[in-house]
Design a protein around this nucleic acid. Structure first.
Lengths: 248, 248
DNA sequence: ATAAAACTTGCATATTATTGCAACATGTTG
DNA sequence: CAACATGTTGCAATAATATGCAAGTTTTAT
């Protein structure tokens, strides 16, 4: 069997079955596993599939469809960079969804080994691109407006967790009214997240600061760290600093 | 034998057999391998065939495997249309992930009111575009290769459900070996899904039929409905019909 | 923590390609 | 027809490619 034939065969089959083992291919085509590995390496270099330990995965499944139009994307990237630094190897991290969180996930270093809990479908999708992290999806009813799971089941699952850190993308934060949102179900989930974490980190563009919505999640004093695109010395943030919130 | 005769002969044979070896041609036509190589080079330059190390491949061979993504999508759309009809208002539906399932979700009518359970992140994302359905996300550890949640927690959640119908995108189906897959964790989840449903429906392109993988999910006789892009009368499917599987 | 499986690297070998060249055939032109 | 240009083929030397094996390392699974 010619090399090209083999590679075509491999490609066809990886797209058919999503996953192939080196040993199986070697057996099927009567060549050594070394040859198969070299084929897979080559196909992987050409971006035709994804090589993994033991075999290969189809690319069609694993490819990322990039979010195109995110509001204020540059600010969010700045926030993402700052926030990503807070996560260390071995940590248990609870996260919500939202575009700012998605940006933070993209900013996570490749070699980070940590465990992330989330009920957000877009966040889960983004986490899957990272090779060295574990993802625990929190199940329950999926809210279409917020794209996260909500409900008693989700909340009780969250309460079972003892996380090191909780990173929330937020809707509104006000020095007096604290952290607020407008979806009752989401509020309950976020409350549970805060309760289950040692440390609470909020990620938000400065525009959302000193706005408020109808339902309270927590008070300003309950927040540990606030990450915005602004310099920590910015006057907008000083009232929060005065209330004991660390500014990043 | 004249050069032109040789090249005509080569072209005829490459289209007949899809592949040729330099050594074989040299022997058949009693000319040196150098000459054959020069012929192949020339034909390749004129775009008549594809020259590779050791021989040549026909153009159709190469493009048929390279170009199948489009064909596959069309097949999957046909499958999706057929399968979507099985879901009626008020039903509880368990689904796996996979590209065929995604197509089926896209094919669901706008006015369908039903409840869907899934552990697949891409499927969940797709379901969210539909206005009138409820989605229950099954939580647990997220498997990066299969993009669905796996593990004991997920399985016990699935077992709590009493679904009307279970729709599975599959990896391999063989008349004797039944439904098989290559990921132990995924197999466990799919098994649980089958057990929790009154009716089992498999969605697959015909290419996966009569292939098998390492781990068994269920026997052929345990399948209720098989949906492919083929006509129900296709001879490939008749053995399944004989075993009591309904063909759509 | 340990053993098994999978991977990497370097190397040996065999197969396949390339190149220049000589031999011969074919075709062209005055 | 002779002389010359052109094209084709095979050969030999050399280069490049493909493949398997073995030793040592890394990753994964139990």
């Amino acid at each position: 069997m010619l090399k090209k034939e083999r590679q075509t065969f491999i490609l066809h089959n990886v797209n058919l079955h999503n996953r192939l083992l080196v040993g199986d291919l070697s057996e099927e085509m009567k060549v050594s596993e070394d040859t198969i590995r070299r084929d897979l390496q080559e196909l992987s270099d050409n971006g035709k599939l994804i090589k993994v330990h033991g075999g290969a995965l189809s690319k069609s499944f694993h490819s990322s469809f990039n979010n195109n139009s995110v509001y204020d994307i540059d600010s969010k990237k700045v926030i993402a960079q700052k926030a990503a630094q807070l996560i260390k190897d071995g940590m248990f991290v609870l996260t919500s969804g939202g575009t700012t969180i998605i940006e933070m996930i993209k900013a996570l270093p490749e070699n980070l080994h940590a465990t992330f809990f989330t009920g957000s479908v877009p966040a889960a999708l983004e986490y899957m691109h990272h090779p060295n992290i574990d993802i625990i999806l929190i199940g329950d009813k999926l809210s279409k407006s917020s794209q996260i799971t909500v409900g008693g089941e989700a909340i009780s699952k969250i309460k079972e967790i003892r996380a090191d850190i909780c990173m929330l993308g937020i809707n509104a934060l006000h020095i007096d009214h604290g952290l607020t949102d407008n979806d009752r179900e989401v509020v309950q989930v976020k409350k549970a997240m805060l309760e289950s974490s040692d440390k609470t980190v909020l990620l938000t563009i400065s525009e959302k600061i000193n706005t408020a919505q109808r339902i309270r999640i927590c008070d300003t004093k309950d927040i540990d760290v606030l990450v915005t695109e602004l310099e920590p010395s910015s006057p907008i943030l000083s009232p929060f600093k005065d209330m004991g919130v660390e500014i990043l």
